[in-house]
Write a protein that binds this DNA or RNA. Sequence first.
DNA 1: GCGAGATGCTTAACATGTTAAATGGTTCGG
DNA 2: CCGAACCATTTAACATGTTAAGCATCTCGC
Lengths: 181, 181
Amino acid sequence: MPKRSANGSRAGAIGKPASRRVPMRDFSRSLPMALLRAREAVMRQFRPSLRRHDLTEQQWRILRALAAVDAIEVTELARTAFLLGPSLSRILRDLEARRLIERRSAEGDLRRGVVSISEKGVKLMSAVAPSSEAIYAAISRRYGTRKLAELQDMLGALEASLAGLDLGDEDAKLTSGRKFA
Amino acid sequence: MPKRSANGSRAGAIGKPASRRVPMRDFSRSLPMALLRAREAVMRQFRPSLRRHDLTEQQWRILRALAAVDAIEVTELARTAFLLGPSLSRILRDLEARRLIERRSAEGDLRRGVVSISEKGVKLMSAVAPSSEAIYAAISRRYGTRKLAELQDMLGALEASLAGLDLGDEDAKLTSGRKFA
DNA sequence: GCGAGATGCTTAACATGTTAAATGGTTCGG
DNA sequence: CCGAACCATTTAACATGTTAAGCATCTCGC
């Protein structure tokens, strides 16, 4: 596909680094990037193990959440496994098809779905958990158990400090002012 | 702690919490979850602002990376913006269609693509950067600037400590190389 | 009871993450 | 030169993230 813009000219319009024109924090100091990179470094360790059991990261999160309780409503599960409704809905459909979970509806409220892990799901967890724990132990050893706990605390504190902050409309003040009541 | 045992729970009846049968770290102490939640808490602040400018998080990452340089090869950009090739390929196609970036191919090697931000892209960045910086400042204020720097350091250290570790085959040792059926 | 609104979940639509395969270009041994 | 191996990027296929709609059910005021 020779779709490229065949711009044979000497990069004419391409000027100097825009960083001089658009003042902006150095990319490497972006907190979201740091969190993303750290998480990816961690997940890279787990993914092959999950993959060998045909589990995605999210499916594993759901099974773990289900394994800790007897049964749980879908909305509550979404909160626990930190998944949005639509994602959870799709994943539950697949996990049910694989018979790793069981569903019914809540008594007295047919809107609510109640989910629980199946025996087959428990067996799968038993197969995965040992290696998962081993990997976690290796990470903890490598990074330092104490430091790891400290990191967890700081992450929790960050989350807590931003809870209910909602800065999302900051630039509304900068640009146009309030649009909504 | 009770040991895991397939104690033949009744079929159909939903048994007791599987946590008794599958020993596993408490879900709330999962490092990947903590990182995910923290990152989401941060990104939740930025997303509305980006959305007002019709930018996704990844598109913004790319523009930021491009703004810091004159031009950059696709592979290098993927590393900088921490995106996989296929994702980057799609996003560049869209950004080019919106004329926010410009592409050409490297002299002497037609395989390599070279990307740079366009004037229009720079203008867009100029429109977004102020609110982005304001949000970042608010987060820093709220969490503590010093603490934030410390967190960044610890995240970097975590990433570094896991670099080249690759525990992915840990459970191959545990399961004796059971083949997938 | 009953109809409007609220609630719980699912579906739709589009963008990205992820792995595998394909495409086009380059390099190098013979 | 020639073709095989290699390299950079893209395309393909499937799963999830994200927002908006859609459906069924429930609640409540009248």
